[in-house]
Nucleic acid binder design. Structure first.
Lengths: 183, 183
DNA sequence: TCTTCATTTCAGGAATTTCTGAAATCTCTG
DNA sequence: CAGAGATTTCAGAAATTCCTGAAATGAAGA
């Protein structure tokens, strides 16, 4: 499978960005390729298009599956696995945010709670700092949980409200939560 | 400088998480150490506390400075540089988000625009997909720009509104933006 | 200007991650 | 259940990233 120049450049860019995004080059390239393909692709097409080894493709696809970023498809009379990305970009965003939260935030939140549970350490500043950090993360993950519940339509509306958001926040009733209190 | 068990465990955790966060172990540990210190620390204290080489500390601090994550302090009659993290956790969050956007999103947004500018490639699906992705990222960065403008107090209020957000969105006037349109 | 202390640079070694080819496993079909 | 096709596993090679010690640079005070 030969790539068009457009596909080629997009694929290479995703490969280069991979390391910043916490995936390796091949995984980035595979994802980019699937993202631009109207048709599902099998592992051999991917291998050919990217010029990597078959086993590398296999590992990359496994990694993408562990991220929930690809969908498996099958065709009548063909035993091979075919892969696609979700059509709906919002679904992709939801998956990405959920997975990054799981990998980058949750373990730390757990660790902070553990540290707090293990009782006073006679280190007031550190303890306060840890508690504050945990509260902040909890607030942010709580907000995330609410955003996650919104259907795409509402989410889009919120994201395109512009400066009107500030006004809306002010108009809304409710108590100022403890975390805001000034030092 | 000897660490308390609490500091020790926190520091080691940040070191381990470093690779998932896109920084190396030493950078993670230095940041964790500074985060838990009520007093600013100089490079030698850090080196001693973490048991790494002086040059590694130097490079780590440089990296943290490039992320804008540490502040420099000086004391009367002491030529050495001392480092701290911002007291205000919300400031830290703002910096982190801004820097990650700069490193992980902006280059791709630029690339997508370039690809679109380089004219029709005779690959309708890929072109549409790229345009759609660019629009999505623009919407999200636009939303981010609004959030960035909010003072912390309003931000906290928004983040703790819970399910009331959905209602607020509905009550707010405004047109449904094009991006929502169903396929 | 010289000396001393602080910091940075950098070449090369250590550690880790990525990738490959070959072999193993899995799974259909005849 | 044998054989062919598809996929995965895995040991080691290749590439990359991280870290160190030594040397270079910078910056203040004598």
């Amino acid at each position: 499978m030969k790539l068009t120049p457009l596909q080629q450049e997009f694929v290479l860019h995703f490969g280069e960005m991979g390391s910043r995004w916490g995936i390796n080059r091949t995984v980035g390239q595979i994802y980019a390729l699937l993202f631009l393909s109207s048709e599902p692709l099998n592992a051999d097409s991917i291998t050919g298009a990217l010029g990597v080894s078959r086993s590398n493709t296999s590992m990359g696809l496994k990694e993408l599956q562990s991220w929930n970023l690809v969908r498996l498809k099958h065709f009548q009379g063909d035993r091979r696995d075919y892969f696609t990305t979700p059509e709906d970009l919002w679904e992709i965003v939801r998956i990405l945010v959920a997975e990054r939260k799981k990998r980058e935030i949750d373990p730390t939140l757990t660790k902070l709670r553990e540290l707090e549970m293990s009782g006073p350490a006679g280190d007031d500043y550190a303890e306060a700092r840890i508690a504050e950090l945990r509260e902040l993360i909890e607030m942010m993950t709580g907000f995330y949980a609410e955003m996650e519940k919104l259907e795409t339509e509402r989410l889009v509306k919120l994201m395109t409200m512009g400066q009107r958001i500030a006004g809306l926040i002010d108009k809304a009733g409710g108590v100022l939560p403890a975390l805001t209190k000034r030092k």
